[in-house]
Simulated scan of single mutants.
Amino acid sequence: MNVKILCVGKIKEKFYRDAIDEYVKRLSKYCSVTVTEVPDEKTSENASDTEIDIVKDKEGERLLKHINERDYVIALAILGKQMDSVAFSKFIEDLGIQGKSSLVFVIGGSLGLSDNVLKRSDFQISFSKMTFPHQLMRVILSEQIYRAMRIMKNEPYHK
C-alpha cells in the first residue's frame, strides 16, 4: 500500500518534523509513505469570507495537482466521520481488500480545505470536533496510520 500525506505549508518547528519523521520511518515496515507539502497562501488576520475562499481555492489547486485519478482521497475535515483507532485500522484494511492501494490523506492549511478538494475526496474523516494546528495534525495523522498498521498486523501497541 502507498500512503501519501498531502498538506499545505511547511513545518518550521523541529520537534514536529522529528515526530513525523519517526512515524514515517516506523511505517516503512508496513507501507510506502511520502509527505508532500504545497505552499500556503498569506492571509491577513481580518480576511473577509471572500478572501478566505480565494486563499483556500489557491491552496486547493496546488493540492489537487498532486492527486491522481486512481488515488483514494481521504480529506481531514472537522465535519468528517469520527472513528476510534480500531475502526480506522479496519477502514484502511478494507480499502486494501477493495484494491485501493494508493491512499492520499489531505490536510488543509490554517483556513481548512477548499470545496473542490472536499468534492474530490472519496471520504472525509475528523479526528475531533476540536481544532488542531495543521502542523500538529500531521503528527497525529502519522501516529494514527502507524497505530492502524500495528492493529492490522495484530502487533501490540499501547491503548
Rank of each mutant, 00 (worst) to 15 (best):
A75E: 12
F123M: 07
V106M: 02
L103Y: 02
S89A: 15
E143Y: 03
T131S: 12
D71Y: 04
V139Q: 04
L111P: 03
T131F: 03
I74K: 05
A87W: 00
N116A: 15
I92L: 15
P133T: 14
K100I: 04
V139K: 05
E69D: 14
P133D: 05
F91N: 08
F105D: 10
I97Y: 08
E93Y: 13
F105W: 09
V117D: 14
Q82V: 05
P133R: 09
Q135I: 01
E69P: 07
L79Q: 13
D115Y: 08
S114K: 11
V139C: 06
I107Q: 12
R147I: 11
V86Y: 08
G96Q: 10
T131H: 06
L64S: 09
Q124Y: 00
E143L: 06
A77N: 14
S110F: 02
Q82H: 12
S114V: 12
K100C: 11
Y72L: 05
N68L: 12
Q98G: 02
Q124V: 01
I67M: 14
Y146H: 08
F91D: 04
M83T: 13
I97F: 08
R138S: 05
V139E: 00
M137P: 02
I74Y: 08
S128Q: 07
S102D: 15
V73D: 11
F105Q: 10
I140C: 07
Y72G: 08
D71W: 01
S126F: 00
L95Q: 09
S110H: 01
P133N: 12
S126C: 02
V139R: 04
F127S: 10
L79T: 11
K81T: 15
F88K: 02
S142R: 06
G109V: 00
S142M: 05
I74Q: 07
M130A: 04
I78L: 15
K81H: 09
L103R: 03
Q135N: 14
Q144T: 03
Q82P: 05
H66P: 05
L141T: 08
I140K: 07
S121C: 09
F105G: 11
V104S: 10
K129F: 04
